[in-house]
Design a protein around this nucleic acid. Structure first.
Lengths: 204, 186
DNA sequence: AGATTACTTTACAAAGC
DNA sequence: GCTTTAAAAAGTAATCT
């Protein structure tokens, strides 16, 4: 009985240490990504829920913690791409995506697909673009999405192309390379999306 | 009436069987021209048939997995060729080993572009996986028939997980009905 | 700036780590 | 969980000319 008692304490301590580690990792990654404190708290709640539902069995703590943060960013409307999250995590992108899909399903998060518009303010400010360009990019996304061009396309690539197009239209030109770098997509993707969007806008 | 169901094409059939006899894969790898056997990588020996085109994974236990065939008839034909090759090597093979179809992969065309965003919400986020950052297709798990459907913006779809020949047709009729009910089918 | 090749997702069996 | 095999869908990416 004494053994059992000691084991319970040991297990409890180990669990407590794991939880502390996960929460500190969420904090570290959130800082590196520059996400607000409120999002870290949402991420912590998601992680604790995953822990209570026993979703961590067979998965790495770091993987679940990273996925919780990725999900929290989406839930709060300030998404980070999987690439960005993977950069500050020690878990490979593929595992983060897989774990996210799993906890999202099991916890019934029911997050809507990422809206490309939500990347515009962050990408545009990283490129020192004006409010005018942001508004134009947002308009381009709305118009081209309404014409069915968004289905199956990566939200970051879609946002990047719209920002590139808007920068040209507003005479604040950024090169495809510059936009590609902040959005973590290739110039080829920007070129392909840009052509479709310009046509949808009735330009060209 | 030509509808989406008429566009269904079987792309791949996965089946399993067994010859009821243990095998020495090292010896078989030497006797079967074109056989690939890397036990360090994978315990199965890989053997490909040209006509019909298929790939078989042959295991030490005598169990065999056949994949890559374009029809159930092709599966039987390809496995028949393999059974005969083994018999030619004086390996006793059951008269008519039972062949079980494990999975049929089909493609089809709904004939209209799809708004995957609206579809994800309309079909119910709880049954749908749509992460365009990771993959351009929307993943829909259907209970009856029990299949998984990948839907793309072009209206082209993939149906997989079915074991019956008509699972794909039933699934296509069902998904068309559900999409239409949402008013999301052109 | 193309073209090519390759990787992402789904399902499934097999034997073994 | 992973390993291997096959095939489709469409998007993205790396590499070469």
């Amino acid at each position: 009985r004494l053994r059992k008692w000691q084991e319970r304490i040991r297990t409890k301590d180990a669990g407590e240490r794991n939880l502390q580690f996960a929460l500190s990792e969420i904090d570290r990654m959130a800082s590196a990504l520059g996400v607000p404190r409120s999002v870290r708290e949402v991420a912590s709640v998601i992680y604790r829920r995953a822990l209570n539902e026993d979703l961590i069995r067979g998965r790495s703590i770091e993987g679940v913690a990273t996925s919780a943060l990725y999900a929290a960013c989406r839930q709060e409307g300030i998404p980070r791409s999987l690439d960005e999250v993977a950069e500050v995590s020690r878990v490979p992108q593929k595992e983060i995506g897989r774990t996210y899909r799993y906890i999202s399903q099991e916890l019934g998060l029911e997050l809507k697909p990422v809206d490309p518009k939500q990347f515009v303010p962050r990408f545009a400010s990283a490129l020192d673009l004006s409010e005018e360009v942001q508004a134009k990019a947002t308009e381009i996304i709305d118009v081209s999405a309404e014409q069915g061009l968004l289905s199956g396309k990566s939200p970051t690539g879609f946002a990047a192309a719209a920002i590139y197009a808007a920068s040209l239209l507003c005479n604040e030109k950024k090169t495809q390379r510059e936009v590609a770098d902040v959005a973590q997509v290739t110039e080829v993707t920007i070129r392909n999306r840009y052509q479709e969007q310009i046509e949808a806008m009735g330009f060209r | 009436m030509s509808g989406p169901a008429d566009s269904i094409e079987i792309q791949n059939v996965v089946a399993s069987t067994g010859i009821g006899q243990e095998l020495d894969l090292e010896a078989l790898a030497d006797d079967l021209p074109g056989a690939d056997f890397n036990p360090d990588n994978f315990p199965g020996l890989v053997y490909r048939t040209q006509e019909p085109k298929a790939a078989a994974l042959i295991f030490r236990s005598g169990k065999i997995v056949c994949t890559g065939a374009k029809s159930i008839d092709d599966v039987h034909e390809a496995l028949g060729i393999i059974f005969d090759k083994l018999r030619d090597l004086s390996i006793p093979v059951d008269e008519e080993p039972e062949i079980t179809v494990q999975n049929i992969v089909s493609s089809a065309d709904l004939g209209h572009n799809l708004n995957l965003n609206a579809l994800a919400i309309g079909l119910g986020l709880e049954d749908v996986e749509y992460e365009p950052e990771q993959f351009p297709g929307l993943v829909y798990r259907m209970d009856e028939p029990k299949v998984v459907i990948l839907l793309f913006g072009s209206g082209k779809i993939v149906i997989t997980g079915g074991k019956q020949t008509d699972d794909a047709e039933t699934a296509v009729e069902e998904i068309v009905e559900r999409i239409d009910a949402l008013g999301l089918l052109g």
